[in-house]
Design a binder for these strands. Structure first.
Lengths: 211, 211
DNA sequence: AATGTAAGTGAGTAATCACTCATTAATATT
DNA sequence: AATATTAATGAGTGATTACTCACTTACATT
């Protein structure tokens, strides 16, 4: 009789390290969270997605909320830092930065929308976003903006407004395409970036039409 | 013995019309939804907020989701239409429109954030938003934009990009202040609008710095 | 006053949820 | 080989959920 060996699972035990299991869970959680939202996702579904038992989740994360934080924390800074090149002038910097950000958003579209959606309801998400994105974002953008102002190429608009309009234009790229599909049908990232940057830097009005 | 008269509720019965009750429920639902999100809100809590029994909710709305739709539907168009004045030129129109929109968002901040947050997860919300806001928005904005292009005051940027950047800047005003409080500390709507409009119309760069 | 109808109620219900725990198994240590 | 440790399991649990329904009540009609 081969009862015990065959009736029980023959293969699903430990073939991965604890860390790998953790990553499986995080990955599945991210997928399900972004699709259904935090409160709309169940730990059972996440377990299924990760290919583990539900109890396993709680061995790695004390609560569901802790799982949420763990999912977002690394993602919040990811991609922010990748501004390695030395840019010569502020305009060049903003061009690269916007292109870089919009590509990131295009690729991590669901994640970005999820982060800002859940930030509405969870203090922890809001704080993580605020500390991560804003903190890093300011550190990177503000010096370049101020340099541009000093050089006389940028207007002395208050920096928060610059940051706000910039982020709004860039972040809304993902939201817009998701909520209003069918619009901007064959807009490539390059075109979208160029047109967004054009408005951000030079505005919608033609120069000659000065008041 | 006064048992039956006193143990039961002495006063809470019909003093309002069915329509008034419905409005009470919608109002309470809106408050609780915007605070905790759709899936984070319970019908029990909404009933409490509206001062009715839980069963009463389901006499007016078949399901919780139907309540969500009923909450949003009128709000989606509200305020959109209030562009009654005849504007003389496109620039003037965009100035008024942006000011109008940003005031609306400032006042209905929670609602707006809620709509876009839930649009991530519910097809019905997305469609309502898409049909309502975009449909009406395009009808209003596009003619003015095209008029401006014909007059030579606006650049011939593809309209979707104009709409997207405009909406992004405007809508993100509410999100920004909520997610990143402490920034732009004493920014009045007027200042914020002016600075946003400045960037939208003329861009961040000074004119002389033409390439 | 009697009766019919529409509105409101809240205890009840089946389903679902996040989370637990006793048990089992895989690895490390001796 | 024996033992200890760590990881994984999934049936079970109490709490919570959206929704129901038998009943009560307020009003309108006669």
């Amino acid at each position: 009789m081969k009862s015990k060996q065959e009736t029980k699972q023959p293969e699903i035990r430990r073939k991965k390290t604890a860390e790998e299991r953790r990553q499986d869970i995080l990955e599945a959680a991210l997928n399900i969270f972004t699709e259904k939202g935090y409160n709309g996702s169940t730990t059972a579904e996440i377990a299924r997605g990760a290919g583990v038992a539900e109890g396993t989740i709680f061995r790695h994360f004390a609560t569901k909320k802790e799982l949420l934080i763990a999912v977002l924390s690394p993602k919040i800074l990811e991609g922010i830092i990748s501004l390695d090149k030395k840019h010569k002038d502020p305009v060049e910097f903003f061009r690269c930065f916007m292109k870089n950000r919009m590509e990131f958003i295009k690729e991590n579209d669901g994640l970005v929308r999820f982060m800002f959606a859940e930030a509405q309801y969870h203090d922890e998400v809001r704080e993580a976003l605020s500390n991560g994105i804003l903190g890093q974002g300011i550190n990177i953008v503000q010096p370049w903006f101020e340099k541009g102002v000093k050089q006389g190429v940028f207007k002395p608009v208050p920096f928060p407004s610059v940051m706000r309009t910039f982020m709004g234009m860039v972040l809304f790229y993902g939201v817009f395409n998701h909520v209003f599909p069918g619009l901007s049908p064959e807009n490539t990232i390059e075109e979208a970036t160029d047109q967004t940057l054009e408005i951000f830097l030079h505005g919608l009005m033609v120069k000659e039409a000065k008041t």
